[in-house]
């Protein structure tokens, strides 16, 4: 119970320190901000180590290697030597202060990550965004319900005109100009709605923090 109370007070003080920025920039906020950056960086490191490096590199390969269990390493696990080498090459960037001439070595793993990102950028975008979004836009423009028909028109017309607005290869004149002007109407409504949605999400977080202070910490409600 005492431990809970202590940690609730820590959380409350950190919350108040961050909120103190609403008055003006001050040392309490600065300290809390730096604690946030430091602990987040360390948290991310622990997270990646535990969920990525440990199960994907240490357990299948290095733990067996260090225990001399070479026969336990399967042929597909031997391939893990490649990301290990790439990782070591990446770490040559740490030598940037003492041996900047060695930094080119890190370009190889960077090239690998860029290659994976680009390959997935094409296949993932095709599979995850382009095809499903186009598929969802092929809607019947004439249905038995007037409201349904109207809504389908809004989606098809809104999508096409928004795309027309972002098509800069041709000057926005004539039909394209008209479509682009209609597109900006949809874009503004969309941005406004997204903005309102974001504000409400932030406000609910704010309510959560205030509730934490008055309920969990001060027990006022």
């Amino acid at each position: 119970m005492m431990v809970e109370m202590f940690w609730t007070t820590v959380a409350a003080l950190l919350t108040l320190a961050i909120f103190s920025f609403l008055y003006e920039d001050n040392p309490f906020y600065k300290i809390a901000e730096h604690i946030y950056v430091g602990s987040s960086a360390a948290f991310m490191f622990i997270y990646v180590l535990y969920f990525d490096l440990w199960p994907k590199l240490w357990t299948p390969f290095f733990s067996k290697l260090f225990h001399g269990n070479l026969s336990g390493i399967t042929s597909s696990q031997w391939w893990l030597i490649i990301p290990t080498i790439l990782s070591v090459m990446m770490l040559t960037r740490l030598l940037g202060h003492v041996a900047p001439q060695a930094m080119w070595i890190s370009r190889w793993p960077i090239a690998f990550t860029v290659g994976v990102g680009s390959g997935l950028g094409i296949t993932g975008t095709l599979q995850g965004i382009l095809v499903p979004q186009i598929n969802a836009t092929f809607l019947p423009l004439w249905t038995s319900s007037i409201l349904h028909t109207f809504n389908n028109w809004i989606i098809v017309f809104g999508t096409l005109t928004t795309l027309a607005y972002f098509y800069f290869s041709v000057e926005h004149k004539g039909v394209l100009g008209g479509m682009a002007r209609a597109g900006i109407v949809f874009i503004m409504v969309g941005f406004g709605a997204s903005f309102g949605y974001t504000v409400m999400a932030r406000v609910s977080l704010l309510i959560g923090r205030v509730y934490f202070l008055v309920h969990n910490w001060l027990h006022l409600v």
Binding site: V114, G115, G117, S118, G119, G121, I122, T125, L126, I129, L130, Q133, I134, A136, T137, N151, I154, I155, V156, F157, G158, T159, L160, T161, T162, L163, Y165, F166, G183, F186, I187, V189, G190, F191, A193, S194, Y197
Partner: peptide, 29 residues
């Protein structure tokens, strides 16, 4: 508003981003 005009605009923007992303990825490769 969220389900129709907002969705239409977002879909147009997503399609633009997707096409741009594919073009950029091809340029990198």
């Amino acid at each position: 508003v969220m389900n129709f005009p907002q969705l239409a605009a977002k879909r147009g923007i997503f399609l633009g981003i997707a096409l741009g992303g594919i073009a950029f990825s091809l340029r990198v490769i």
